[in-house]
Amino acid sequence: MQPDTTMTPALEVTVLVSIGRHPVTGRARRADQDARGVELARSLADAEVSLLHAGELAEASEPALRGYLGMGFSELSLLEQPEGADVLPALAETLDAAMPQLVITGERAERGEGSGLLPYLLAERLGWPLVSGLAAVESVENGVATLLQALPRGQRRRLKVRLPAIVTVDGAAPAPRQSAYGPARRGTFETIAGPVSRDEAWAEWQVQPARKRPKRLKIVKAASARDRFKAAAAKAEGGGGQVLTDVTPEQGAEAILKLLREEEVLR
């Protein structure tokens, strides 16, 4: 399936894709969040979606990039950057020239520093608004997009943002479709040259495989051994709650309602 380009006022969408890392085997793969971003872009009505990757085409990473092509694309723009380069200037320049309406990225990369800073830096540099943690794009009308942002605890928030904008998607966005083998083989890479800047700070830092974080111990600060023993042997107890006995159901319900209101869980 080719992106439909016959519709005239097509929404130009660029998805920034990166090379992921399988959490168990460590092999290169489609980055999960980026793939979700591609899926989100594909679900937009009359959008013209293009893929952009900044990096080099190495033997190990090619299958991962082809994974994105297999989601229904005939080409992927490859902004050539050596390993360990700071891709921000090149990306900003390319996006500035292409002027898409919407740029979709993942929340954090699965390789390298993975600080999740790139979309924010791009937004700051291009002067575009940024919305993070997207779950869905509801509609795009007259240069204003209505978005659904994923909040913690399964909640959603509706936002309106003026385009052009950068949005990031996370695990709450719809799961990506499978990559089809044929289109993945046939797809081509269109290489673009860009300015290269070295990431010097990164080279100075010490990077090692993640250590397991120590578990926090429950430290009881008490003056005497007796208090420490009592604290260690005590049953977990709430800090002496309020108990309403001999109340009518209505009074009880009122007290509960008051607490629910205070905690703002009632909508």
Binding site: P23, G26, A109, E110, G114, E204, A210
Partner: peptide
Amino acid sequence: RGAAESVDIQR
């Protein structure tokens, strides 16, 4: 923590 929680960066 960096790279999807898989590396520790000292800086």
